[in-house]
Design a binder for these strands. Sequence first.
DNA 1: GAGCACTGC
Length: 777
Amino acid sequence: MASHDDKGVKRSNMDDNANDSKRIKRGENGGDASAEKYNPYLAHLNEDGNGSGSGNNGDFESPLDAFKRHETTALQAAQAEDSELNPWTGQPHSQRYFDILKVRRDLPVHKQRQEFLDMYHSTQILVFVGETGSGKTTQIPQYVLYDELPHTTGKLIACTQPRRVAAMSVAQRVANELDVELGQEVGYSIRFENRTGPKTMLKYMTDGQLLRESMHDHDMSRYSCIILDEAHERTLATDILMALLKQIAARRKDLKIIVMSATLDAQKFQSYFYNAPLLAVPGRTFPVEIFYTPEPERDYLEAAVRTVLQIHATEPEGDILLFLTGEEEIEDACRRISLEVDDMIRESDAGPMKVYPLYGTLPPAHQQRIFEKAPEPLRKGGRPGRKVIVSTNIAETSLTIDGIVYVVDPGFSKQKIYNPRSRVESLLVSPISKASAQQRAGRAGRTRPGKCFRLYTEKAFKKELIEQTYPEILRSNLANTVLELKKLGVEDLVHFDLMDPPAPETMMRALEELNYLACLDDDGELTRLGGMASEFPLDPALAVMLISSPEFYCSNEILSIVSLLSVPSIWVRPNNARKRADEMKMQFAHPDGDHLTLLNAYHAYKGAETNGEDMKRWCHEHFLSYRHLSSADNVRAQLKRIMETHEIDLVSTPFQDKNYYTNIRRALLAGFFMQVAMRESSNSKVYKTVKDDQLVMIHPSTSVTSPYDWVVYNEFVLTTKQYVRTVTNIRPEWLLEIAPVYYDLDTFEKGEIKSALTRITDKVKRRQAIKGSGSGR
DNA sequence: GAGCACTGC
């Protein structure tokens, strides 16, 4: 649905001399032109009827005709790149192309093109290390392109990225560098947007997208070379891809693999890939001087604010980046810095300073403000102005800000941890790793030499910080991953060769959870339900709930709820309008559950849309997030398509039917029967989770006004207290009916929950004895 | 009566 009317590359008009230059610039091994006329890549262009705007050079002579696959030399490739005509399209190269080419030839990686090619020719798997500024992400895939010659094989080159924006922007950049239109020879593929076409030879994509693709193509047979970029980030998807590719490489000798990493931790990648050869290319950054505190700081927030002010008072011009852990802390620090700077200006004629918060949940328009220029001096000849950005880890990898000269690093970040015993994923403020500290420091040296102030001792850095942040796979609930692996045809999970195998207990938990959800049978084999569930880009519980929902006559509604639960919160609650926001939310509130409240808000949103309202304004007035609601709509459409391919019926109970909401509440349990809590006693606010026996409270954001003794919850959050968030009232007898295996009372430990459930079983039995067999829905 | 590190399908 994305608009694809991007103008792409402008081509200069050189028709008149095109033929001459073609003759002059012919590659040195050109040979007889007429013998080389047939070019399979362009033949396929002709099949398209030549109508796609790429011109009519169907029979042009390309220097590539003389290339031999896997024998390309740097010189040959460079000469082809120098041609007047684009060797891939036959179109004349634009002036911009040659301008960019000059810049590319200046990148550190360019000097080692031949070395790269020699190594690439000699091996199936290659590890490539390039620090920031080396040009690896844009250049290496192009070097591969000129060697793989996809037009002769029909196979693509893939380059994965951990983030969508990176996949999109790098693809655009490389399309410009190759002087082609984005989506034609060079494209990208991310969730919701596939911008590739029949001509695509080089495809940038997210790592998760390649993983999804491989569920239907276990050999990744569409590709002749797969490049995993930013492998040092060790995302879940990259880790799984590495293990898969290791397996595939053994059966597909024609597949080449390049693992690209930014750190010098490359030996780990090398030895993992059977001592694959390694090529290292220097980066291009400026030196950063590191300062440590002589003594440990007790209050890092206070120390951070103090350091920022000190830099402002004593250091020359240049912007500051301060790393903190979360929204609240950041807003607090921004307030304190602003206040103190006002004093400094009054008392000691300091320059002006603009303070910008930066974190992921900040609306994009606010995020953009960090790119504003630092303020001018307050008067002519006055002390220079400065900006300071107070950011989460988002500025460590996802966002690059030029002009930063000073970095303040207290040494902490919020990290996800998973406790398989309590089955709880939570965020915990933890010390960062050495690699992370280095990355942070590097942010000071992108445009000129900089300084990094670490608010910990040098000894702490050397002795206490771990080398690398634990990879995501060691910090996550793996239910989703295990399901994916089963679908990927990995039979033996225990011997699946992951770079860092997760704890056996985490694996057991995942298998157990999938077994209860009936996604895996008792032998650990994928069931039909499990196979279907793996097709959805959802956690298994959500997928199972969605697939089961027609049995409860409410799949349309569950589809909406699942979509709403898959996006960030749709509720907007600005600090200066909390009360009004809460009042607005009450308009949508359903007394029996937050899931139903979400649904009401979504229905109101769709209703307003049908009425032709200005939706941005409508959302603003109702304190709803337009961005997240429209993204939920997007998710909904994708999930709906998957449901249709599996012939899962889309049905609703009539709204007038008294069971409309009851059916939805029951359907929630088909996926979330393991996330149920029972009230401790009838007036208590404390609940106990079923089987795990965790004491929890209902999160204050809830719209449930009269809590039942039993609730189903969407997530467990561990903050100042243990909360369950997004909860809905349920009846315990539904549990016994909908999830009889999990609620087999013989499997329960003695306790209040078991006795409560036992009483209910007896009651149900008595009622059935009186009525005969059970009543319908 | 709190809060949402960051990604991804």
